[in-house]
């Protein structure tokens, strides 16, 4: 390889590196600008993942997990915010007759401080979080599929503004099945009476 060829090769390699660097730079700038524009002033909408069919036995409590996603750049209050004025995230279910709502398990909030309140820790959810709830079909429920409806109430903020409370409808299907057959004990027999 001549000196000229080597020089050309070095220049080519340097040029490719520069291209790569510039491409990354553009992606970074665009992503940073778009993300800052997105988090400004637009009320976020939470999403809930589809829940696979839940099979629930009569007379027993079956736990169901609902998985929520908060858009990046936002947070919502946990179920136990640290101020009486803050609106807690709360799930409200409306179940069919004879399917009882069991306990609702909220995740613990993350203690976080924000630019608007650096000295105060708030209990919040951000990113993905799950709420578990129990469904308890009574013995009177006819086996079959039932749809459970409910709403998640939440109030979101970003680093500079807060948005009015919103509700997110949630629903999932429960297949109610009979409880296992009870082992029948021998019927009580009248004691033999020996005279």
């Amino acid at each position: 390889m001549t000196a000229d060829q080597m020089k050309t090769e070095i220049l080519k390699t340097a040029g490719m590196k520069l291209h790569g660097f510039l491409a990354l730079f553009i992606i970074f700038l665009t992503a940073a600008s778009v993300s800052s524009a997105q988090t400004l002033g637009k009320a976020p909408t939470l999403t809930v993942a589809a829940v696979p069919l839940v099979t629930a036995q009569r007379t027993r409590q079956t736990m169901v997990s609902l998985n929520f996603r908060i858009p990046a750049g936002y947070h919502i209050n946990s179920n136990t915010p640290k101020s009486e004025f803050l609106i807690p995230t709360a799930l409200k279910m409306d179940l069919p007759t004879d399917i009882i709502l069991g306990k609702i398990e909220y995740p613990a909030g993350e203690d976080a401080s924000f630019p608007f309140s650096p000295d105060e820790k708030l209990s919040v959810y951000s990113g993905d979080f799950s709420i578990a709830l129990g469904v308890h079909p009574l013995k009177s429920v006819v086996p079959g599929k039932y749809v459970m409806h409910g709403v998640l109430r939440y109030q979101a903020c970003d680093n500079a503004a807060c948005y009015p409370p919103k509700t997110l409808p949630v629903s999932f299907e429960v297949k109610v099945v009979r409880e296992p057959a009870e082992h029948k004990a021998n019927p009580a027999q009248s004691p033999h009476v020996h005279n």
Binding site: H19, F25, S33, V34, A37, G41
Partner: peptide
């Protein structure tokens, strides 16, 4: 010239988004 063009494009895009951001604000 293409690296220079890319730099200019990057700055124009970033500037537009920045201006848009502040207008929205």
């Amino acid at each position: 010239r293409s690296p220079l063009v890319l730099v200019i494009v990057a700055f124009v895009v970033a500037l537009m988004l920045y201006v848009g951001y502040h207008k929205a604000r």
